[in-house]
């Protein structure tokens, strides 16, 4: 169980990015976090990953406080961030240096097969397309078998077809070991395709505005009425969160237009 206990983050310039966020995410659960630009989604994710230290509160995973990057927590960034001097196989095996060579090679080969890139193993990252590079990043994050996988808008730079393909791929990989997934996204469709629960955040400072359960059966049909209904619920919550942020006399100093999430 991953628990966030009143997480707050104030930057050195005085900006309060996140304030008093508490939530619990169960094992194997997929949580999507959506919200307007600057509502603290990525800040929250970085606090969970241990890459940033929260100013207040704490992150607890299975009764262990997380204060730095942890072997049970993996992260996939918005860009693939592959190491250009390592081959595709080298990138996938980057987190496995402590393992015996044979075991490492086996794990890497399996991971590459799972993301359909076996024939690219010896290529350099510069030789991959954007979608292939992001698949390598997914394989790299999943191969050490983290208990929690954080995804920070991982498909936002990709075209619609590649994005849908990678969403399906991600669900397939998630089904192997069922880690907890926490996905930050601007794409409401993506949130509903993937998540068991959608958390809507509001800005200035970043707080949880609403939580919408999403218990549609998988695989989810993007054309179904149930999908459309869930989408409208999330969009309505987003609209309310944005208008609340825009009219809040104490906490909002920006115009409503500046906080448009799309």
């Amino acid at each position: 169980m991953l628990a966030l206990d009143r997480i707050g983050k104030t930057y050195a310039n005085g900006v309060r990015a996140v304030d008093g966020v508490s939530l619990q995410v169960g094992p194997g659960e997929i949580l999507a976090i959506v919200g307007g630009s600057g509502c603290g989604k990525s800040t929250l994710l970085r606090a969970i990953s241990g890459l940033d230290t929260p100013s207040q509160g704490r992150v607890v995973l299975d009764d262990e406080a997380i204060a730095a990057p942890h072997e049970k927590i993996g992260i996939i960034f918005q860009e693939p961030r592959l190491l250009p001097w390592l081959t595709v196989a080298g990138n996938v095996g980057f987190g496995l240096e402590q393992r015996p060579r044979k075991q490492r090679e086996e794990l890497v080969a399996n991971a590459l097969a799972r993301v359909g890139l076996t024939e690219k193993a010896r290529m350099w990252p510069r030789e991959l397309s954007g979608g292939q590079a992001q698949r390598v990043a997914i394989a790299r994050a999943l191969v050490p078998r983290p208990r929690v996988l954080l995804l920070d808008e991982p498909f936002s730079a990709l075209d619609a077809f590649t994005r849908a393909d990678l969403q399906d791929h991600l669900l397939g990989l998630w089904a192997d070991t069922k880690p907890t997934l926490i996905l930050v996204t601007h794409d409401v469709d993506e949130a509903i395709v993937l998540a068991d629960r959608v958390m809507v955040m509001r800005s200035k400072p970043g707080r949880i505005f609403d939580e919408i359960p999403c218990d549609l059966p998988r695989p989810r049909d993007r054309q179904s009425a149930a999908f459309d209904f869930a989408k409208r619920r999330v969009l309505a919550a987003l609209d309310r969160s944005l208008s609340r942020a825009a009219t809040d006399p104490v906490e909002s100093k920006t115009e409503a237009g500046a906080a448009l999430w799309w």
Binding site: S49, P69, R81, L83, F94, G95
Partner: peptide, 27 residues
């Protein structure tokens, strides 16, 4: 910085960060 962050996310020690990230990056 983003590449260094990958090293941090994989919990590289100081010497491992130099050997596996900084040295190849500056080569």
């Amino acid at each position: 910085r983003k590449i260094v962050e990958v090293g941090r996310a994989f919990r590289l020690s100081g010497t491992a960060m130099v050997r596996r990230i900084l040295l190849p990056a500056v080569l």
